[in-house]
Amino acid sequence: MNESTMELSKLLPIIAPLFVIQLILVIVALVALAKASQTRGPKWLWVLVIVFVNIIGPVLFFVVGRRND
């Protein structure tokens, strides 16, 4: 127990930037999704993909889901 909490405090500052970058990707993708008038496929499905598919989810939305208008 004690060991794992010690590891966590060592781990957190190192991996925090990873989470921040992922968060930026997810938030920007969600904002773009909210602003888009039309998407390929239902919007609620894209919300799930963006939030739950790691890294590739937002990228897939930008590449496949958005319609250029």
Binding site: P17, L18, I21, L25, I55
Partner: peptide, 23 residues
């Protein structure tokens, strides 16, 4: 088309995770 944003971010994510995972 948000490429200016996601391409660098994905490369950064891939690059940063490699040394962290190794460590």
């Amino acid at each position: 088309s948000y490429k200016l944003l996601w391409l660098p971010l994905v490369f950064l994510l891939l690059g940063v995770s490699q040394p962290i995972v190794t460590y």
